[in-house]
Amino acid sequence: MAAVLGLIIGVVVGIFVRPDIPVFLQPYLPIMVVAALDALLGAARAYFQRSFSDKVFVISFFTNVITATLLVVLGNQLGVGSQLQTAVIVVLGIRIFSNVSAIRRFIFRG
């Protein structure tokens, strides 16, 4: 409930307020969004498994985002930024898919 409310608030604020994203942050914003999405879906899965914990969600959210961003930063410094970015996106995508399939199983098994 709180998550959906927060999403709606964020989207509305994002639509009406459009700040200039600092240039150094711009390459990492899509990675951050995908990582956060993964965290959110993991939390949804945990909710369906009745093992949801607020603290775990908050921590996993931040660690996901920060880890993904740091990986890409590291990749940029090593000169393999785009490849590592692809790797991070792929891994997060796989996780998102597995989370979604777990949620689907919970929903349809009843």
Binding site: I9, G10, G14, P30, F57
Partner: peptide
Amino acid sequence: RLITNVFVVLLCAMLGYGYVIQLNN
């Protein structure tokens, strides 16, 4: 509990916000 709920709302808001910004970006 209230604080963690607020955190959840805040984080989801950040996610949605970042998503919309990236869409426009």
